[in-house]
Design a protein around this nucleic acid. Structure first.
Lengths: 195, 195, 195, 195
DNA sequence: AATGAATGAGGGTTCATTCAT
DNA sequence: TATGAATGAACCCTCATTCAT
């Protein structure tokens, strides 16, 4: 059980580092030093740097799947489900540099996730909650936006992660919504009398 | 002048490679081989790999500034100017991995650009074309989305770059627009970018 | 006594592995796993990998000495004694990679064995059973031939170890024998080794 | 042309080192230092340590083939051809540790050589110059003996390589010969009156 | 008697960089 | 203007070894 804890800590450190700097830019030394151990100690928990990346990716996927499941349960309509998902989704890994064998499995998994997300967009378009658009592009834009944000709001900002997530979700919501956005737009529309 | 031409070719090759694979994943050998010269020849044109990256970044910034200037001249209101800019912006560089000295200069420059973009958001909010929101976050989201897209639509897709740009612009526009969805799209559609 | 048994098993596993793959190519992990224990457990029985090698070598030497003693008792003349020895000799160890201190002791021991073998050659030359030749070279050739054989007849061949030993002994015998080929073989064939 | 010379020197140093210590026991540092260069410099001439080994093996094979061709031209009968070959053959490489792809090619080549040698044994048996025996075993014994010798007569001994080769060839010859060996046996047979 | 966990040294490899030519 | 040759630092990884438990 001691071991699982350390492995977990290592995994978290690796996810953070890979996310911050990218896979190739992160040396095992960095990760090891952050945990106060030697580079070689990592090999007690992971067989290679690549395996570590795979584990990070799998963890991220698992978190994403969980978020998605919960969002699908709690959202009222397509758009809401989608936005709920994005509000939870924050972990990212680098899908670069995976060795071909692992790469295929992970790409497959990632594609499955994207397919589900696109399905939500279609559902939203059908039920009238989402504006007509290309689902693939919509998802890419949102993923890009979401993946990008933490690079800027890492710790320096005065915002909490929750505040960032909330505000970002509102904007992405507006990007898709057919309704005048509930939160802020209403007030605004009134303020905007003549063009 | 012969030299300028070669240097220009080198810069373009580097931008393409860095953009495609990232800075650390691109070896000077790759760039050199694509130009049919030796690795060592590059040092006749650039003092280091890092200098090459700096040059790439400066070039990207210059392209961005030009796009911005044109967009400001041609857009009718804040939102339109912004969207026009994004429709032109496509070059990306890696802001990672810069050595500290250069890094500061470039970060400063990038910040100046972002400040201007944020100013446009504020202008849009004032003139009623953009929904009230946090300008910083809005810009990050849009940059993220825009920076992410080319990773997916590289070559496989059947869309042209222009089509992608058009569709993406519409969605980002909707994210900010105070106008009802339908109209918005029309506004943007008129503000075409020549190929 | 439990301990001795385990130590013996370990030694045997090490001899087999070193013999099969060489000293440097065999990791302690391999040996440990074959015995179903941890790498660290080996250190309860041997102080170091090098000590393990020394023990292997000593065991091989002991086996060789026993073979030699028996051969000297049972052989009728010099050549026969020699050939009898070779028919028994099969264990090999790596004399490489010994640390200097141990190396000297082992080389000394190996030299003693070789001296005795050379003495047998001289005896054979004197008693007329062995053709005049350089004893040192003769022994090296025979050792080389014998050490080499198991690399080829490992498991694939249809021959049993005994058959190989028999046939090889005949040929080596002929290399030294003063008698016409036909007779020689008969002499040796009678001097059987029990399985 | 300068390059070919250096590459040749490197190859020779590698052959010597691999032959002396084995492949795994030889570090690239050792080879590099013997040539007065850095480890990294080797990669200018060979793509990997494994490639270096492959080159060594190919060179050894080429030398063996040349020796064989000459021996077949010059020898009068099967046995003589064979013995002539062994008198020339001295270069050895480690066939261990080749990566599977290269390994197959080289094993194939080595097998071809062995097949030819075995054919000579058969020819000798047919023409009556070689005593009836298993050709495969005979070749293995001779290869083993020959491969082993240089480990002992490296430089310390007072014998020249030529003297060693001459004496070893005589002994191996006797191992196969149907005739009372010309060189020494004749005198011997006379000396040996009563058993 | 044996294990889990960690270490440190060393090895192969890549790559930006330099310099004489 | 460009190349051939070489370097040194950094990286990933393996493995014998240690030590508390």
């Amino acid at each position: 059980m001691q071991r699982e804890l350390k492995r977990e800590a290592l995994l978290r450190a690796a996810m953070a580092a890979f996310h911050r700097q990218g896979f190739h830019e992160t040396s095992l030394d960095e990760i090891a030093q952050r945990l106060g151990v030697t580079r070689a100690a990592l090999y007690y928990y992971f067989q290679s740097k690549n395996d570590l990346l795979v584990a990070c990716f799998e963890r991220a996927m698992q978190l994403a799947r969980d978020s998605l499941a919960k969002a699908k349960r709690e959202g009222a309509h397509g758009r809401e489900k989608l936005i709920l998902f994005f509000k939870r989704y924050l972990a990212i890994t680098e899908e670069h540099a995976l060795e071909t064998e692992d790469r295929l499995k992970l790409i497959e998994e990632r594609d499955r996730l994207e397919r589900e997300l696109r399905a939500l967009v279609k559902e939203g378009i059908r039920d009238g909650s989402i504006v007509p658009c290309d689902p693939k592009l919509a998802i890419f834009l949102m993923l890009g936006a979401v993946n990008w944000v933490p690079k800027w709001f890492s710790r320096k900002g005065s915002w909490t992660n929750l505040q960032v997530a909330q505000a970002a979700a509102e904007m992405l919501d507006r990007m898709l919504s057919t309704a005048p956005s509930a939160n802020v737009t209403d007030d605004v529309r009134k303020a905007r009398v003549e063009p």
